[in-house]
Amino acid sequence: MNIEVEPARITFDIHADETIIQAAWRNGYTWPTICGGQGTCKTCVFQILEGFEHLSPVEAWEDTGLRSLADSLPNKGQGYRLACQAKVHADIRLRKIGVRKQHGNS
């Protein structure tokens, strides 16, 4: 399974048991976060471009986070997920700025 990230045109593979941010890290990519993937800072939020139905259901903790963002995201936050919470069971394409290959001092 693959995650395709716009606008950087990055693709990496993902396992069914890991979140999108964990898959990015395993593949050596950075992903914007301040809390380190705990679902609190919401900085990892991304927009789904394709494969909406391939994402895991939104659970309570992520739902709390997404609802706190809803008023400030386009379309009341519809089509947005947190990369530190969401998993997939098939390919998706998404948009997230700031995803890039780690270099140097990891």
Binding site: I34, C35, G37, N105
Partner: peptide
């Protein structure tokens, strides 16, 4: 500052 996966702490 560039870091890889954010660590807590």
């Amino acid at each position: 500052k560039t870091k890889g996966p954010a660590k807590t702490g």
